[in-house]
Simulated scan of single mutants.
Amino acid sequence: MKFRPVITSLLLACASAGLTSCFSSSKVNTKNETSVGQQLSDLDNAYRRGIITEKEYLKLKKAIIKAND
């Protein structure tokens, strides 16, 4: 399933943001190996295939763009 990398990327981004405040002496780095264009393409594909709803699509699209702004 191609949608899995999008969710994984979003979860890693959220988790790393939360973990950086827990550890004052270390920095958590995550590297997103999937381009923004590919993430959006995968998201669009998931929506067109009916895997996610329009509401989920719009929410995730906004999150991808914001995370890479």
Score class of each variant (00 low, 15 high):
S9Y: 03
V28I: 12
L12K: 02
L12C: 02
D42I: 03
I51S: 05
Q38Y: 07
N29M: 13
S24C: 09
R49H: 06
R49A: 00
L40F: 08
V6L: 02
R48I: 03
L11F: 00
T20A: 13
S9C: 03
G37C: 07
K27C: 00
K31L: 07
A13G: 10
A15F: 04
R48N: 08
T34D: 09
Y47W: 13
G18E: 11
N32P: 03
D44K: 14
K31S: 08
T20Q: 13
V36F: 13
Q39W: 07
D42N: 09
L10E: 07
L19H: 11
Q39H: 08
V36E: 14
C14G: 06
C14M: 11
V6K: 02
A15N: 05
Y47L: 07
L12P: 05
C14L: 11
R48Q: 11
A13S: 12
N45P: 03
S41T: 14
V6I: 09
R48L: 04
L12Y: 10
S16V: 14
L10T: 01
F23Q: 08
G37A: 14
N32C: 10
K31I: 14
S16N: 08
L40Y: 08
E33G: 06
D44G: 04
G37Y: 04
A15L: 03
S26H: 12
P5E: 03
I51V: 04
L19R: 00
L10A: 05
Y47K: 05
